[in-house]
Design a protein around this nucleic acid. Sequence first.
DNA 1: TATTATATATAAGATATCCTATATATTTAT
DNA 2: ATAAATATATAGGATATCTTATATATAATA
Lengths: 103, 103
Amino acid sequence: MNNKKGCNMKGLLSFQILWLLSKKPMYGDQLAEEIEKRRGEKPKPSTIYPALKELSDNELIKGKKDGKIIVYSLTKRGVIEIQKTTEYFCRSFGEILKESKNM
Amino acid sequence: MNNKKGCNMKGLLSFQILWLLSKKPMYGDQLAEEIEKRRGEKPKPSTIYPALKELSDNELIKGKKDGKIIVYSLTKRGVIEIQKTTEYFCRSFGEILKESKNM
DNA sequence: TATTATATATAAGATATCCTATATATTTAT
DNA sequence: ATAAATATATAGGATATCTTATATATAATA
């Protein structure tokens, strides 16, 4: 039996949501599908909606209800935040991609 | 008062440790300093050592004691794991750096 | 109208990553 | 030898991100 785990890759969900919304306003399930394209796994509703609520509570995104869907986009604070966090992300992890072939 | 928080940027510590060790064997405090160069803040001992223990328990890294320091390097499993996780990382976040000026 | 599918939401639990604080062992300096 | 600095380690707590399971509201379909 193999009880050895691989390396944890959790994290940066809110950052990825913020980044995706900076490209195009989207609703929750649509965001989950965009994340699936990248990570290979679609976040569960119980992962994505609490994250959207947290970002919304912190006024980094705002939602506009349209029937059963809520379309989110960045607030002014969100625009500033995605600039700051993208810089931090590039400083922290940029070199890892720099050496990768498919860049 | 402003109770609004920014976007959380926690995560991928074990991945970053594994990546750094794939470049050069290092001991704990040395790793913390390398992470500080990138993230701007040096992880506390209580952050870095449990992470090293976890990676070690999962046989992704191995430590060699030399006096008071323990020099860590990747195991064979660790080498395979850093390849896999780097691919995942690039698929998940590569585009964010691709558009950044300083690449 | 009734059923099914879609989108959103919440509850309860696990774990990694952060914190402050404290402890121990080893090395270096006085 | 004693003190100070360095490196490692653990305890206890907070939060984001993940899980499975359940619930509710709206839209589309039979």
